[in-house]
Design a protein around this nucleic acid. Structure first.
Length: 423
RNA sequence: GGCGGGUUGCCCGAGCGGCCAAUGGGAGCGGACUGUAAAUCCGCCGGCUCAGCCUUCGAAGGUUCAAAUCCUUCACCCGCCA
């Protein structure tokens, strides 16, 4: 499989750009290499946009290479200008430290830290923090030509647009230093990243050449795009996060299930660890029997399991089946119902108090922004209680409607569900 | 520093004293069709104690029975000149 690694990536559409392809192929095929991918802590969690490169890292490890996931404890304090037309606002140091820890933990679950190709976690704060400003300017800065720095896409875009601070302008130097450090410490000879990272990665290669007379490789993967032009990984509710507290496994599962048919082929290839044959079989099914949605289901199942574990993936799928199945909700046993509802947006009311109207309940779950919005849903005929359509803006569920005496399932439209528990 | 243009609801963008919660497009939402898809069609799309009321058109003041629309000051953006 090692030999076929790049070919496999190619087939999956995962290669945007590489440095000398032949040299890279040769290095990958002759020996296991160390390679790194950096993740800056810009939020408390990684999101689905990070997943393609994470999966790619995993593919490299499965092929016998040694991953160095790097969390940008230092670079996260500075801010990467790549792909942004505005200056980032700086986050508090304590916040970044917290995010570093959380992201490190998330990354750990995708890689193996044992065996011959064990992964090794890195944090660029380790070597960046101790450097004095003078050392930095004399030993590192001297190798950078401002002329070249200005020509990078990430910088020139900003020169034309909203401007750039000295802080963010320096970002590429820090990232270059990371590559140099990892090259020196662990003989890391490949850096991967999203296609917007090309400039930063190449800056590192230049630095390695100048300081160590060494050489390495760069590989970028394309930005995942959707066929309708909208941004992959964004939903109405915002980003799809990998943290189950921020995006429930159920919502995560639904994200994949709801994908356009037109995008499924690309997504399966990018994200699935199935063999080419298996993937092709799923794609055949998608063409011949689209209504069955087998490819969607396989994709959702596999990725939810990868990110949240088998158990949560099964729960999410079971929940989907229960809530969207043709079966009666009342046929679900209490325990299944409870675990299913646990993943939905929810609210609680006291049994002793008067039950609020459907509109008030839905508003309380946060599925709609305002009461007016909830009223509109009722007026337009998109309001359901326990999968049965209701009407009348003042409709109020009664205790008799409660499943097992304590649950209401509210539905808005076709697939937006929320749970109410009577306590 | 001088002169001119601009700042409108999630985004783009009309409106230029009353008929304006504000045209149109996009996004989003609901319905129909279908497959928890796409396309299409229909409807909705500031809030609320909802046949009424309240708060919006960069900010603050002012004129008027009445202002997003007129005046003043301030802030930011964009052109031309220096």
């Amino acid at each position: 499989m090692t030999k076929a690694l790049l070919a496999d990536l190619e087939w999956r559409g995962l290669i945007a750009q590489t440095t000398d392809r032949e040299a890279l192929t040769k290095d990958l095929e002759s020996n296991p290499i160390s390679f790194y991918v950096g993740f800056d802590p810009t939020a408390p969690s990684l999101h689905i946009g990070n997943l393609a490169v994470i999966c790619t890292m995993r593919r490299f490890q499965l092929a016998g290479h040694k991953p160095i996931p790097l969390v940008g404890g230092a670079t996260g304090l500075v801010g990467d200008p790549s792909g942004r037309n505005e200056e980032r606002s700086l986050n508090d140091e304590s916040v970044v430290v917290d995010w570093v820890n959380r992201i490190r933990k998330q990354l750990e679950s995708f890689l193996s830290f044992e065996g011959p190709s064990a992964a090794r976690m890195a944090n660029n704060l380790d070597w960046t923090a101790p450097i004095s400003a003078l050392t930095f300017l004399r030993d590192i800065g001297k190798h950078f030509s401002v002329n070249q720095m200005l020509s990078k896409d990430s910088v020139s875009a900003r020169l034309d647009g909203g401007g750039i601070s000295y802080t963010e302008f320096s970002y590429q130097v820090l990232q270059a230093l990371d590559y140099l450090e990892l090259y020196k410490r662990h003989n890391c000879i490949l850096q991967m990243g999203g296609s917007d990272q090309w400039g930063n990665i190449v800056a590192g290669l230049d630095l390695i050449r100048k300081v160590e007379s060494g050489s390495g490789h760069a590989l970028t993967i394309p930005l995942i795009t959707k066929s309708d032009g909208s941004k992959f990984g964004k939903t109405a509710g915002g980003s799809v996060w990998l943290d189950p507290e921020m995006t429930s496994p159920y919502a995560f599962f639904q994200f994949w299930i709801g994908m356009d048919d037109a995008d499924v082929e690309k997504l399966l290839k990018v994200f699935s660890f199935k063999s080419h044959e298996e993937i092709n079989a799923l794609l055949d099914s998608l063409k011949s029997n689209p209504g069955a949605r087998e490819a969607h289901r396989a994709l959702a199942r596999e990725l939810t399991a990868l990110v949240h574990g088998d158990h949560d993936a099964e729960q999410a799928e079971a929940a989907a089946k229960a809530l969207f199945g043709q079966g009666e909700l009342s046929e679900l046993d209490e325990k299944t119902l409870q675990t299913t509802l646990a993943q939905l947006p929810r609210t609680e009311i006291k049994k002793s108090e008067t039950i609020p109207t459907w509109v008030d309940l839905l508003t309380a779950t946060g599925v709609v922004d305002s009461k007016s919005a909830a009223r509109r849903i009722v007026k337009e005929g998109g309001a359901y209680l326990n999968n049965e359509k209701i009407s009348g803006e003042d409709f109020t569920p009664s205790l008799d409607n409660a499943l097992y005496g304590r649950f209401f399932i509210l539905r808005k439209g076709k697939r937006d569900l929320a749970a109410v528990e009577l306590i």
